[in-house]
């Protein structure tokens, strides 16, 4: 059960990334920023779905740090975009 949930989540995220890549290629628009943001959204959803109510599996703990880093990077991207808009 445990193992399956973990791998289901990972598989889900990978499929999500494949979908993103597919549509990016389809629209002739490969943008790492958008890719990153969509990855972050995907992983946030996956984590919310597999997060058990009362316990804290260790792999989720490490994932949390990864997500936190991602959120900060996301902030950097947003700040960057705001700068672009201001400068234009």
């Amino acid at each position: 059960m445990t193992i399956r949930k973990k791998y289901l989540a990972a598989g889900g995220v990978i499929i999500w990334l494949c979908i993103i890549t597919f549509f990016m290629i389809l629209s002739y628009n490969l943008d790492l920023e958008i890719f990153f943001v969509l990855w972050l959204i995907g992983i946030l959803i996956a984590v919310e779905l597999i997060d058990p109510a009362f316990a804290r599996p260790s792999y989720l703990r490490y994932l949390r740090y990864a997500i936190a880093t991602g959120v900060i990077l996301f902030g950097a991207i947003v700040a960057n975009k705001v700068l672009e808009i201001l400068n234009s």
Binding site: A53, F54, A55, R56
Partner: peptide, 11 residues
């Protein structure tokens, strides 16, 4: 609790 509620390894 961890054992019964969820079979995850508790932290």
């Amino acid at each position: 609790v961890a054992e019964t509620e969820d079979e995850e390894a508790p932290a």
